[in-house]
Design a binder for these strands. Structure first.
Length: 212
DNA sequence: CAATAGATCATCT
DNA sequence: GATGATCTATTGC
């Protein structure tokens, strides 16, 4: 119901121009929230890089000093400095010698906190995303993981510190807000603070990185 | 299905 | 020198 599919050969749910028309940019104030609040607010938003995009369906909050699972808990380093800076910037880090993960910086400047984007529902530019990932399976499996979505949208450390309310890499809001329930549960792949319920998911969505 | 091995390197000890 | 906010392929039931 979201839009008319213009090109029968495309899997895209929305053409790029339609996506721009159906969404609006975020502003700097949108990101200046408590980290957990921002993690919930980002669900259902659009992550766009150039002409490829998806809807965010899974996030995790990473807090400050007390959260030993968070990179920022060890303090400021060249890698983590952006987490302590102004909100709405990209914290991109390299992991396991192979993958990049994208976070959105939260909290007022001077306070640490960021939100890991863990899964996207692909919307636009799906053919290009498939090529980047060399993926021929179901579309729900194209960007349903933090390392998969950065590869699908070609996001890397070049975007470290980029602002996300404008520019090639940006987060946008639907003019007609989608309706869904949110589940909270333990974060994935960590060894500290394993019971803190800081993973947020769009309930029942097929593109989650793991099923409930 | 579930469990596990292997890939591969920036970061911090 | 060990580890990690991961993913894929493969093995085994």
């Amino acid at each position: 119901m979201n839009a008319v599919r213009k090109n029968k050969d495309s899997e895209d749910r929305l053409a790029y121009s339609e996506l721009l028309a159906a969404t609006a940019p975020t502003d700097a104030a949108f990101f200046q929230s408590a980290t957990e609040t921002l993690a919930r607010k980002l669900l259902g938003c659009v992550l766009l890089h150039h002409r490829t995009a998806g809807t965010i369906v899974e996030t995790e909050a990473y807090l400050g000093t007390a959260d030993l699972a968070a990179h920022a808990s060890r303090g400021r380093t060249p890698r983590t400095q952006v987490i302590f800076g102004p909100p709405g910037r990209a914290y991109v880090y390299f992991i396991y010698g192979m993958y990049e993960c994208l976070n959105v910086v939260a909290e007022p400047e001077g306070q640490a906190g960021c939100v890991l984007i863990r899964a996207l529902d692909p919307l636009t530019g799906i053919a290009e995303m498939r090529q980047r990932r060399r993926w021929t399976g179901r579309v729900e499996g194209l960007a349903n993981g933090p390392g998969k979505l950065t590869q699908a949208l070609a996001i890397g450390r070049e975007q470290y510190g980029a602002r996300l309310d404008r520019g090639a890499l940006s987060i946008r809001l639907w003019k007609e807000t989608p309706q869904f329930e949110v589940d909270a549960g333990p974060r994935i792949g960590i060894r500290e603070c394993v019971d803190w319920p800081l993973r947020f998911t769009w309930r029942g969505h097929p593109a989650l990185s793991r099923r409930a």
